[in-house]
Amino acid sequence: MTFKAIINGKTLKGETTTEAVDAATAEKVFKQYFNDNGLDGEWTYDDATKTFTVTE
């Protein structure tokens, strides 16, 4: 399945996608990506659209 992340950061904005077997796996991938890029913020997840949003 394809999962999307919308990034609303102070220094980084945009979208990225990942292929994962479930939402928990996708969340781990996205959180690692955000940690690697120095992002920290509020997380939400919309199961209907398979979209994570992080707002810094």
Rank of each mutant, 00 (worst) to 15 (best):
M1K: 10
T2Y: 08
T2M: 13
F3Y: 12
F3H: 03
K4Q: 05
K4N: 04
K4T: 13
K4V: 09
A5P: 02
A5C: 15
A5T: 04
A5Q: 01
I6T: 04
I6N: 03
N8S: 08
N8R: 11
G9P: 03
G9H: 10
G9Q: 07
G9C: 14
G9T: 15
K10P: 10
K10L: 14
T11W: 14
T11N: 12
T11L: 11
L12A: 06
L12D: 06
L12H: 12
K13H: 12
G14K: 12
G14S: 11
G14F: 15
E15R: 05
E15C: 15
T16S: 08
T16A: 14
T16E: 05
T17N: 05
T17R: 06
E19C: 15
E19R: 14
E19Y: 14
E19T: 13
A20Y: 03
V21E: 09
D22V: 01
D22Y: 02
A23P: 06
A23W: 11
A24G: 06
T25G: 06
T25P: 01
A26C: 02
A26E: 01
A26M: 02
E27A: 10
V29P: 00
V29D: 03
F30I: 02
Q32V: 09
Q32M: 10
Q32S: 08
Y33E: 01
Y33M: 12
F34P: 01
F34N: 01
N35T: 13
D36H: 08
G38S: 06
G38N: 10
G38M: 07
G38I: 08
G38Y: 06
G38H: 09
G38F: 11
L39K: 05
D40S: 13
G41T: 08
E42N: 08
W43T: 02
W43N: 00
T44E: 10
T44D: 08
Y45G: 01
D46M: 02
D46G: 00
D47H: 10
D47W: 07
D47N: 07
T49N: 07
T49V: 04
K50H: 11
K50W: 06
K50M: 09
T51G: 00
T51Q: 02
F52D: 00
F52K: 00
T53F: 15
T53H: 09
T55D: 05
T55K: 07
E56M: 13
E56T: 11
E56Y: 12
